[in-house]
Nucleic acid binder design. Structure first.
Length: 859
RNA sequence: GCCGGAGUGGCGGAAUGGCAGACGCGGGCGACUUAAAAUCGCUUGGGCAAACCCCGUGCGGGUUCGAGUCCCGCCUCCGGCACCA
């Protein structure tokens, strides 16, 4: 029987609260629209999420990857920021001084494409998008300190990107060189290695070609070892991301060996990780681009044919060489070098499978012990010589083998080294090479220097000028920023409009005052995002990129959250920057992000949402129809953060239904409480009553147990889905309890409602805030301490355990929670069904696990 | 090919080596209603008419009193890398 008095109207009357919708509706329906707007406004007026340095409290820096202002938020953004907001709000309630900022990664190609397609200036397009998306973010009610907002395309920011570039330049970490680089014909710009995916442009999927160009690079390879080593210290990073970075850096130990050329001066340098196989080297291969090629083919009879081959490979190179494992092709140069260990001549070939960009661009080929070399040897009928035998079993037959033996073993056919374990031989041969001055041990990385030049307009200008007299001259600090001119024309030629902007290009040399030309390339936008997390610590700094004290107070980021697609690119560049800045003394932290959470994608119909597939869900529509709290709750409840999330309209309905269920429960029960606030504040009152019935005690147990579960799930595991399901169970239990009507204990209800709303605050901040105020509180729920639980209340006196016979559950048993194993066994044997099952059989053993079960093993 | 991750009801997903399927969605039944929606209960892995029972966490083995969980060998899917010498 339900009390009629459980009406919203009366709830408000009795509590005398000043809550929002009191004045606007008599219906019990939850008006999310009104509630969310009102509180968003109130929070903003009160500057509720403003944060400053406070040495008296522990700091917590929670950061979500800032978005590119593409136009509108998608559900992936909603998910990302909802996750971050739970963390930020939870930590705030836990007493941390939480920095939770947001900004815009605002330089980039889409703005230029929009300029060409819709005849709108990239700047205008970008700023309009930012305005729109900022409104969307505010509509979601994420707890950002908006005073810290900035966009990377603003001169106040990119001035410091340029300033940092100059510091890199001074330290020799920014340099210019001519190199064969990746070129995307569609984007009409060069790309870093990291931006080429399977031979295609990461952004537009166009096949990437190569070009010889003079470009700016960052010397990230100088930091390869530190970037690799320090991965071991990042215990809060997913193993997967660390593995990807390790592979990308690709450290390998080997030996550079100089093979003297036969009949002429000089030598051919190769890099190998298997010096122990040198006696098996039957030919050499150099990359078509190798500088020695012209010399090597000088006297070859079919010189023209060889040249044609080289050109063919270079062309093939552009299309297929990286995208698929094509056939290995090559041609003999006509030249030989001498194997310094055997003295025999070895033919030098040119081959498509050797890359100029790795090692020395030349290899010694050991077909018996390297699959690629074996493939090539079989194709051109080159000799195969086995020099490593397996530790056990027979050595492969050189004449017939089709699979190279690449494992360690015992050296054979290797002169004085024969009989040695190959690993030992590795060192002995390396020593011998060094002793004879024919090379040295060395470490080789797969990682290349970071190509940062872009032949595009909408990016941060590289602050250098070219002077006929003085060469490359950095722009002096006091002339920064080098402003991106706004009055430029966009044509679909792919040519950067900066090239045609005479006022920009024509300048004077800061050194000699003579005429000079400005650099017209801009920086890769990954440069902008490599230090933004530091700027958030001091976003308005005017005399430096950020103040060291503030940076040192906030850094490193305690929790970083974003998509796994940035596992290599952004996350490695940012680590590189942080280390350089630490070396420069600008910031102390060696690593930028202590803990990393890589969220899964939002899928629909099993595929990533994309415009081209037409399976997108618009964040605005969902928020308009269900409200921000529902949108957030759905993304948090449907899957754990790191997994992919399959979109479900029914799931959104479910989230909405739950919030309404909470709304009804709390508003109705609030009416039951006289002076709700007083009771709610006094949780202890619920505990000291001998007046508590069994049902009251049980309800209290559920309340405290829920606090325990939610705290654990959020704090230790970031499992928001199970945290929310625990809250759902509490609500279900409350509905059961509510059936008791007047028999309910008011102190228990008050305590339960209070804790429920507090638990809900990080997940559904608007609803929680509204209910909190309706319960008679004046201060924001988001400023309250996180609820605690009493372990004594959680504990039960009696528990139900399973009783198994031979591992199968046959019965259940209610027993004292602290019963001894002996008591458990005895009680189990008393059971009717156990006696029947045991009758006439031998009990082999009995296992009793306190709190769990008893297992009786019979024969 | 190499390196990760994942395979659990109709679906999303839960389970420190200890009662598989929490919670939600969907379904079924009931209450309220003239009726429907909403809401509130109850119910819902499969087999059997049902009880008891049997079978169930991708497949095949193993360890264990006890395995979704640990070990060995496979299969499938997803992600990353891919001539890196």
């Amino acid at each position: 029987m339900r009390r009629k008095a459980f009406s919203l109207l009366e709830a408000c009357w009795e509590t005398g609260c000043m809550a929002v919708s009191q004045t606007m509706t008599k219906s019990t329906a939850y008006d999310f629209e009104q509630v969310e707007r009102t509180w968003q406004q109130r929070w903003e007026e009160q500057d509720l999420y403003r944060v400053d340095e406070d040495p008296s409290r522990p700091k917590y820096y929670c950061l979500e990857m800032f978005p590119y202002p593409s136009g509108r938020l998608h559900m992936g953004h909603v998910r990302n920021y909802s996750i971050g907001d739970v963390v930020a709000r939870f930590k705030r309630m836990r007493g941390y001084n939480v920095l939770h900022p947001m900004g815009w990664d605002a330089f980039g190609l889409p703005a230029e494409n929009a300029a060409i397609q819709h005849n709108i200036h990239p700047s205008k397009w970008t700023w309009e998008n930012i305005d729109f998306m900022r409104r969307q973010l505010k509509r979601l009610g994420i707890s950002y300190d908006w005073r810290r907002e900035f966009a990377s395309c603003h001169p106040d920011y990119y001035k410091w990107t340029q300033w940092l570039f100059l510091r890199f330049y001074e330290r020799g970490l920014a340099y210019r060189k001519r190199a064969s680089v990746n070129w995307c014909p569609n984007c009409a710009t060069v790309l870093a290695n990291e931006q080429v995916v399977q031979g295609r442009c990461e952004r537009c999927d166009t096949e990437v070609t190569t070009r010889e160009l003079e470009q700016w690079f960052f010397r990230i390879t100088d930091y390869a070892d530190r970037l690799l080593e320090d991965l071991d210290r990042l215990e809060g990073w997913p193993e997967k991301v660390k593995t990807m970075q390790r592979n990308w850096i690709g450290k390998s130990y080997g030996v550079e060996i100089h093979f003297p050329l036969q009949g002429r001066d000089g030598h051919l340098a190769v890099f190998t990780t298997r010096p122990d196989t040198i006696f098996g080297a039957t030919y050499m291969v150099v990359a078509p681009e190798h500088p020695l090629v012209d010399t090597l083919i000088e006297d070859a009879p079919g010189k023209d044919e060889i040249r044609r081959f080289i050109e063919d490979v270079k062309k093939q190179d552009e299309i297929a060489r990286t995208s698929e494992e094509g056939d290995k092709v090559g041609v003999f140069t006509g030249s030989y070098c001498i194997n310094p260990f055997t003295g025999e001549p070895i033919p030098i070939w040119i081959g498509n499978y050797v890359l100029m960009g790795y090692g020395t661009g030349a290899i010694m080929a050991v077909p018996a012990h390297d699959q690629r070399d074996l493939d090539f040897a079989r194709a051109y009928d080159l000799p195969v010589r086995v020099v490593i035998a397996p530790p056990e079993g027979e050595a492969p037959d050189a004449a017939t083998m089709t699979e190279a033996y690449a494992e360690p073993g015992v050296m054979v056919n290797s002169g004085p080294f024969s009989g040695l374990p190959s690993q030992e031989g590795w060192q002995r041969i390396a020593e011998e090479i060094e002793r004879r001055g024919m090379g040295r041990r060395r470490v080789q990385y797969r990682l290349r220097d970071w190509l940062i030049s872009r032949q595009r307009y909408w990016g941060c200008p590289i602050p250098v000028v070219y002077c006929g007299h003085c060469g490359i001259v950095p722009v002096p600090d006091d002339e920064l920023p080098v402003l991106l001119p706004e009055d430029v024309a966009f044509k679909p030629t792919g040519r950067s409009p900066l090239l045609d902007h005479a006022e920009f290009v024509q300048t004077t040399c800061p050194k000699c005052g003579g005429p000079a030309k400005r650099e017209t390339d801009t920086m890769d936008t990954f440069v902008d995002s490599s230090w933004y997390f530091l700027r958030f610590a001091d976003p308005h700094a005017a005399d430096g990129p950020f103040g060291k004290e503030k940076a040192d107070y906030w850094m490193p980021v305690d929790q970083y959250i974003g998509g796994v697609e940035h596992a290599i690119l952004h996350l490695m560049y940012a680590r590189f920057f942080q280390k350089v800045l630490a070396d420069m003394g600008l910031s102390t932290a060696q690593e930028p992000f202590t803990n990393l959470l890589t969220q899964g994608m939002v899928l629909k119909d099993g595929a990533k949402m994309s415009k081209s597939k037409g399976n997108t869900v618009d964040a605005d529509e969902i928020v308009a129809k269900y409200g921000a709290d529902t949108a957030r709750l759905f993304t948090l409840f449907t899957a754990p953060p790191e997994r992919d999330l399959e979109w479900s309209d029914a799931g959104v309905e479910g989230a909405s239904r739950f919030l309404n269920r909470v709304w009804r429960l709390v508003t109705e029960l609030a009416a039951f409480l006289p002076g709700a606030a007083a009771g709610a504040q006094n949780g202890a009152a619920a505990g000291n009553g001998a007046a508590l019935t069994e049902a009251d005690r049980q309800m209290r147990r559920v309340i405290h147990r829920t606090v325990q579960r939610v705290t654990k799930d959020v704090e230790e595991r970031f499992h928001f889905n199970t945290a929310i399901s625990a809250i759902m169970e509490l609500v279900n239990a409350f509905y059961q309890y509510k059936e008791r009507g007047d028999a309910m204990n008011r102190a228990v209800v008050a305590e339960g409602l209070q804790k429920l709303v507090l638990l809900l605050a990080p997940f559904a901040p608007h609803l929680a805030e509204e209910l909190w105020h309706r319960m008679g509180h004046e201060e924001s729920v988001h400023l309250q301490p996180w609820p605690d639980f009493d372990p004594d209340v959680v504990r039960t006196e009696e528990i139900e355990i399973a009783v198994q016979i031979n591992g199968r559950v046959r019965d259940r048993l209610v027993i004292d929670a602290d019963a001894s194993q002996e008591e458990m066994k005895a009680a189990a044997l008393e059971l009717e069904r156990v006696r029947a099952a045991v009758e006439g059989r031998e009990i082999v053993r009995i296992v009793a696990v306190p709190g769990r079960l008893v297992n009786i093993v019979v024969k």
